[in-house]
Design a protein around this nucleic acid. Structure first.
Lengths: 305, 305
DNA sequence: CCAGGTTATTGCGTAAAACGCTATATTTGA
DNA sequence: TCAAATATAGCGTTTTACGCAATAACCTGG
């Protein structure tokens, strides 16, 4: 059963004459006759009473006429809907990111994207950046803001958005406050100075990896006071005086607790933290994710995996 | 665009796997792939995002899914509706007849027909039998109760229902009433007896034809007092004493004025009046009219044109 | 009554479309 | 690195659709 047959049928219901209807359909009369016959067989019902002089619609034909009109109208409506969707991108992208990212660099990016593609809905899920890639790989989110991994999985595409130094932070102390575990000369670290320092680090993720590497390079076994999920929480605990932490400077710049902590001028410096957007390679085929990918490209230089 | 493609599409939306969907559709994977491609081309929109490992529905695909479900469901509903209609005849037959016919022999016929075919609606239009064939020929009514014409038009089919004598009727008079124009010896008609008789005849139709023929055969020029449309009106005027009329006996038998008139034992007798059902030959192809035609056959012997 | 015109359908040969099989490219997991 | 799984493209064969020509039936006009 084929739309062309429905169109032939409707034309004949209007013309009630095989010759004229066949002309309107741009087929021969015999083709039209067969088309109608096929419909009648598909439905096992006579649609027209006809002889070589008269064509009249049967009651069954009248019922099919209603159905045929509606179905073809809805098909046309569907095509228009899909054409409109092709013109304007619509749909939903879910993005996983940290709280800091959500109201710092990402805010401006997504604002520009929203005004360019008003039909696209963005769903932000905030959480620990250490979980970001896992969520994308598992398909829980379409995209994530994540630090660039040292060895990216081959199925992921990564594009840089910004770079941030990774810094050691200590509590900001008034003169005379008693906090004797803060190293006197952080620019010249020694095991003796750092072995008693209560460290507040991420549970997992790149900042934790870089901190571990830093200590190992200096032959220091750090005293871990707390392992925390999320850099914002590290800023809080350091500000409360519990210890020293390692966070991306951007997190500090965007924290309301920034005046409660100070950056230590630690040498050697930790590597810069490359923050960007990651997505499954195969998801880049989707016009939606492709559009956001392009938006990022226009703002930064491309870093393809 | 073809229902088979819609079915393939729906199966793939459920399986989200070309191999399994192609099995469910009883086609090869390459056929299914092409079927989906054809739909995508017809709609100029991607319906699935897919690679050799994943198949995901696009937003456009979701829209088509809704349409496809509805359209195929409605098609099945339509088939069931038409199947039900084929089992039980439904529709409308319009019948033209005289008032007498409507509550005499036709009443019982149509009662039986109605209980056999409750889905068929009957529309009765009453009027002068002289108009009955014209109405059928013009398509104003599907069928008509009519006297058998002497030369039936070739496009009409006629089937007898009943026969009725055609009779002369005079006013029923009490002894001593003064009505000197009623012939003394109607069994021996003479021009002298009948020339002064005020005749009340149909304007047209068979009863008029037969009356004219009767008078002509006796060399009588009748004095026409009135030409009336409908036999029932003739009975009324004769009962009121205006003259002598010619009507089918069945009309008299079914008239509330029967006791106001008497039948004259006129010789030679007028021909019997063969009353039946007439219909356009081509209308007999319709299951409805065919059903009523069969009902008449079962009650009477067939008289085909 | 007959001939001509009109109309829907059927049969036939040709063209177009559909199909399954096989090969291919790609991805993933062990 | 290799094997398995998967969607797609190419090819030859089969099936379906199509227009042309013929046919049967009906109606009209001479």
């Amino acid at each position: 059963m084929d739309f062309r047959q429905l169109k032939h049928f409707l034309t004949l219901t209007e013309a009630l004459h095989f010759g004229r209807a066949s002309e309107l359909c741009h087929v021969s009369p015999s083709t039209l006759s067969r088309s109608i016959r096929q419909l009648e067989e598909a439905l096992d019902a006579p649609l027209f009473e006809r002889d070589n002089r008269h064509v009249a619609l049967t009651r069954q034909g009248l019922i099919l006429q209603r159905y045929a009109r509606e179905t073809l109208e809805q098909w046309e409506a569907l095509r228009h809907t899909l054409a409109a969707e092709a013109t304007q991108l619509t749909g939903e992208i879910s993005i996983y990111c940290s709280v800091t990212a959500s109201y710092s660099f990402l805010y401006e990016l997504l604002s520009a994207f929203r005004s360019r593609h008003p039909g696209i809905e963005l769903k932000l899920h905030t959480g620990d950046p250490a979980d970001s890639m896992a969520r994308v790989l598992a398909g829980d989110d379409d995209m994530a803001i994540t630090p660039r991994p040292r060895v990216p999985p081959p199925s992921l595409a990564f594009k840089s958005l910004t770079r941030s130094p990774l810094v050691f932070i200590a509590p900001f102390t008034k003169p005379g406050a008693a906090m004797n575990w803060v190293p006197d000369t952080p620019e010249s670290p020694t095991p003796a100075q750092w072995k008693g320092v209560p460290m507040i680090l991420s549970e997992a993720g790149l900042s934790r990896d870089y901190a571990d590497t830093w200590f190992k390079a200096l032959g220091i076994t750090p005293r871990i006071y707390a392992q925390v999920a999320g850099h914002e929480a590290i800023v809080s605990m350091v500000g409360l005086g519990f210890g020293i932490g390692v966070v991306p400077k951007i997190v500090l710049d965007n924290s309301p607790l920034a005046e409660r902590v100070r950056i230590l001028a630690v040498k050697p410096e930790l590597p810069h933290y490359d923050v960007g957007l990651c997505v499954l390679n195969r998801r880049l085929k989707s016009p939606l994710t492709q559009a956001l990918w392009d938006e990022v490209s226009e703002r930064t230089s491309t870093t393809s995996p």
